[in-house]
Design a binder for these strands. Structure first.
Length: 274
DNA sequence: ACGATAGCCTGATAGC
DNA sequence: TGCTATCAGGCTATCG
């Protein structure tokens, strides 16, 4: 599941592959992926444009095209991009194909069909409904213990639900939420108003740390994730609790447990995380 | 206003 | 073996 480190890695790899290329044609095989505008308008506007820049905001990929157009792309669970020669066999679940003028094509694949694309004016991206309410970027210098404290002290929900809330911090998903909380020695189920300042400081620090480490090794390949070059990430080897239920905790040896919190599978050490 | 939850979707896996 | 049920999870819509 692409979270911030995976989307960042995809962005970095795609930059090397498609920046400056001109799109000749767009083929859409699953119209549902294109939320806005209508598919024919989506195709018509994009054709002839070139890719000027690729950005990331939270888990969103932003393809900036010429003439003030941006494709806002969300990969959800299993969306991915890859560059292929036009005559290479097309893999199953390929839903959108951007044919470039140089006989290569960027293909969007998505087994679960959950991903979305929106084509909007670049100048309107910040106000787009899926972007406008996003919370702070974890690497923003303004993301501090104080910021987090102010944001969550009034909330009634669990800290896990808070970390998953994209309107508070943008980019954390289920894998990294569990890892951040384990490293912070905080139970996922604990209500935010029960946390100490020290807990919140640790969560803030470990958020930056874990995400940075994961980006360094290209993200976590848990299910189908590969980067724009088709390469797997390596951070799954450094996961200490996610999908580790039944195994001994690396710190205390107690068995890692799995429960359901905030509607998500949640992994933690009952001894280390109080 | 806010928090909790169903639904979207396919493939892997568990259970009978 | 082969079928069915369950789970995985980010986000949106909907409910209380």
């Amino acid at each position: 599941m692409p979270e911030l480190p995976e989307v960042e890695t995809i962005k970095n790899t795609l930059e090397q592959l498609v920046l400056g290329k001109t799109i000749a044609r767009v083929q859409v095989d699953l119209p549902r992926i294109i939320r806005h505008p209508a598919v024919d308008e989506f195709q018509q506007i994009i054709e002839g444009k070139s890719i000027d820049a690729i950005k990331r905001r939270g888990k969103f990929l932003l393809f900036q095209l010429t003439d003030n157009w941006t494709i806002i792309s969300h990969l959800r669970m299993e969306g991915n991009y890859g560059l292929f020669k036009s005559d290479e066999p097309v893999a199953k679940h390929t839903h959108v194909t951007f044919q470039f003028t140089d006989c290569t094509q960027l293909r969007y694949r998505d087994t679960r069909q959950f991903g979305t694309m929106d084509l909007v004016n670049t100048s309107d991206v910040a106000n787009h409904k899926s972007i406008a309410n996003l919370g702070i970027e974890p690497f923003d210098p303004n993301f501090t213990e104080q910021y987090l404290y102010d944001q969550i002290i009034k909330k009634q929900k669990s800290i896990k639900a808070v970390l998953l809330d994209q309107d508070i911090i943008a980019g954390i998903g289920n894998i990294y939420a569990d890892e951040i909380l384990f490293r912070s020695k905080v139970s996922p189920m604990v209500a935010t108003n029960k946390l100490t300042k020290e807990d919140i400081g640790n969560i803030c620090k470990n958020t930056k740390l874990v995400l940075k480490e994961a980006i360094k090794v290209g993200g976590s390949s848990i299910k189908s994730y590969v980067n724009g070059l088709g390469k797997m990430g390596m951070f799954q080897q450094q996961l200490l609790v996610y999908k580790q239920d039944g195994k001994p905790c690396v710190v205390c040896g107690e068995e890692i447990q799995k429960t359901r919190t905030a509607g998500r599978g949640t992994h933690y050490c009952p001894n280390c995380q109080k």
